Amino acid sequence: MHTIAPDAVDTDAVDVESAAIRELVNDLIDRHSPPEVTARLDRERAFNTALHEALADAGLIGLGNDAATSTPPDPRLEVAVLEELGAGPTSMAVCLVVQYMGVGLLAQYADEAQRAEVLAPLVGGRGRVAFALSEPDGGTDVAAAMRTRATRRADGTWSVSGTKTWISGPLVADNLILLARTSEPTRSSIDGITMFLVPRDSDRLRITELDTFAVHGLDTCTVELDEVALPSHAVLGEVGMGFRQVLSTLNGERLNAAAVALGIARGAMAVATKYAKERNAFRRPIASFQALQVRLVDSAIQIESARALLDRAATAAAQGRRADTLSAMAKVAASEAAVSATDTGMRVMAGAGFSTEFPMERLFRDARLYTFAPLTNEMLRNYLAENHLGLPRSF
């Protein structure tokens, strides 16, 4: 069994900075995405360009990375931004999960030209990326099932063909960070996969938007590549090592997914408790009913439990300590807290929750994303069974 060591005492400076960032994010939300704007963009399935630009101008995408830094931003600051966005304009939080992943990969693996052409615009808010990994025949086991192929030509350029699906934000991105198999695996299915930077406007690249249940403020798409030509310098990192490079970002992705889910849960609780205090039945506020109080308190306990796990995981990651187990726990706990809180909110609000007049129905829909992304909660439990409890591998 893997024992999770207690956190070392952290500096007060990060707590102060995180609090200031949360205040700044909420100020930007109030100005650029108040509830009525968020609801309208959800109905219109439109991206909030004004909010994205404001976040970038405030330095909340780079978070100190100036395209010359090889270290990704502090995960504790990333989760602070994402939780606040998750509580309101959830689609922008989902967008920033992808952008933070892009910043992390580019900061570690981009060459000088890629830093200037892709990373600098990304951290400055003048560019966006999408991450193209999953395929029609492979989600959780995508490495073994990967059918997208990149073939190197005699002149050193590449030709890429294949299909990626469930890709977040390619319609509003300038570049795709795309993984393709470049050689057959030897020891492991994750070998022989290379990471490429693919301009969205590449010839013979087609993007088709999917009609999704939730997260309507950010497009979800299928991306098809039919012998897309890429220059030799399109490779991000090392040929054949792309999937291993991506593995280094998994803790961050789980942490950031947990932060968005925690924000959704917190947002749902705020809406539900406010409604319960104001709604009267039988000549008193429904907030005084025991059954509703029990449900709301149970959700509050789940939220605070998830927050504690997320804080510990983000602190461990920031200090360079092992965080894989904690980040997996935090993602499961936060996503299930979000599902529970939004379900409770719908029950508390009844018909009002069913109405698009209130944000509860949107939060209810958006919360479901992180029960299966970036990895299903069932697979994370299998991972924890093996790596935390020492049980036999189940997959």
Rank of each mutant, 00 (worst) to 15 (best):
A68M: 13
T273E: 15
G139F: 14
S168C: 11
V172E: 15
G102E: 01
K277R: 15
L369T: 09
T342Y: 13
E238S: 15
K274T: 15
Q290W: 13
A338S: 14
V9T: 13
R284T: 12
S305P: 00
E209Q: 12
D174G: 12
L255Y: 01
I207C: 08
A39C: 02
Q290T: 13
T11H: 10
K274W: 05
T273Y: 04
E36A: 05
E361F: 10
E336S: 12
E238T: 15
S161C: 04
A333P: 00
G88H: 09
K277F: 12
V235W: 04
R76T: 02
A259E: 03
G237K: 10
D42C: 06
V198I: 13
T71N: 09
I4N: 10
A341M: 09
P75E: 04
F395L: 10
R254S: 11
D12I: 13
V339A: 15
F243Q: 08
G242I: 05
L105K: 07
G353I: 08
I177E: 05
D137P: 01
A261K: 06
D311K: 04
D111S: 06
G217R: 06
I167K: 02
T163R: 11
A367R: 03
L55Y: 03
L176P: 00
E44S: 04
G192I: 06
P231N: 06
A259C: 03
A58K: 07
A229D: 10
A67D: 03
T151N: 11
Q245W: 05
L218D: 01
R128E: 07
A173E: 05
T208L: 09
A338R: 03
L250I: 11
S202A: 13
F243P: 00
R266M: 05
V332S: 07
D7K: 08
A58Y: 03
P75V: 01
F364I: 00
M346E: 02
L262F: 02
A229F: 01
T140R: 09
N280M: 15
Y100S: 08
P75Y: 02
D366W: 10
A180S: 09
R43N: 04
A291M: 13
Y275D: 07
D66R: 08
D7N: 14
R152A: 11
A341W: 07
R362N: 07
A19Q: 14
D201M: 04
E278W: 01
H2E: 12
A270K: 12
A113H: 11
A13N: 08
L247W: 02
L363H: 08
D211F: 11
A20V: 10
R393A: 15
V25D: 08
R200W: 08
N387Y: 14
H388I: 11
A87Q: 02
K277V: 09
L262T: 00
T38K: 01
R322W: 03
L24S: 13
H233S: 15
T208N: 09
